Simulated assay, not measured.
Amino acid sequence: IDTKQASVEALALFARAGLPLDPVQIYETVELRKIHEIKAAELACSRATEENFERLREILKASEERIAAGEGLAKEDREFHLEIVRATKNGVFHNICSVYYLMGEQRLPIYFNDLERSMRSHAEHIQIYEALLRRDGNLAQALMSAHLQGAESYWKGIIEGRWTEPKSAALERA
Rank of each mutant, 00 (worst) to 15 (best):
I38M: 14
D77E: 12
A12S: 14
Y101F: 15
R16G: 06
R47P: 03
A131C: 09
L108W: 15
L32T: 05
Y27C: 05
L13E: 15
E172K: 11
A17C: 07
Q149N: 12
A41T: 05
L132G: 03
I67T: 05
E50C: 04
R135S: 05
A69T: 03
G72R: 07
T49H: 11
E31C: 08
F14T: 10
M103L: 15
Y129H: 02
H122P: 01
R66K: 15
V92K: 02
E37C: 02
E71F: 06
R33A: 07
A68Q: 13
A69Q: 07
A6V: 10
G137C: 02
V24Y: 09
C97F: 00
R33D: 12
E51R: 14
A123V: 10
R55S: 10
E65P: 01
V85A: 06
R120M: 08
E152A: 10
T88K: 04
E83I: 06
S63N: 02
S121I: 00
D2P: 15
N113V: 01
Y100N: 00
R135N: 01
Q106K: 14
S118H: 06
R57H: 10
L148M: 06
L108A: 08
L132S: 07
L139H: 08
L133Y: 13
Q5M: 11
L73R: 09
A170I: 12
Q149S: 13
P20F: 05
E76S: 02
I1P: 12
E105V: 09
R107C: 01
R57E: 15
Q106A: 13
N95R: 13
L13I: 08
A123D: 13
L32G: 08
E58W: 05
E172H: 09
A174K: 11
L60G: 09
Q149E: 14
V8K: 11
K34A: 08
T29Y: 03
A74V: 01
A87H: 11
H81G: 03
E9D: 12
G104R: 09
E79K: 05
A10K: 13
S63C: 03
Y129W: 02
P23V: 10
Q5G: 09
Q141D: 00
I158W: 12
I128F: 09
Q141M: 15
L56T: 06
E58M: 08
G91H: 11
L139E: 15
I59Y: 11
E76C: 00
F93T: 01
E172S: 14
P20W: 00
H81L: 08
E76F: 03
A10N: 05
L148E: 01
K4Y: 07
E83N: 13
I128W: 14
E58G: 06
A40T: 07
D22E: 12
A68Y: 07
A44F: 09
P20I: 04
R57T: 09
L19W: 10
K167Y: 04
L13M: 04
A174I: 13
I96P: 02
K89V: 00
A74Q: 07
A15F: 04
C45A: 08
T49P: 06
C97Q: 01
L13K: 13
K4G: 09
A15V: 07
Q25S: 05
E37D: 03
A174M: 12
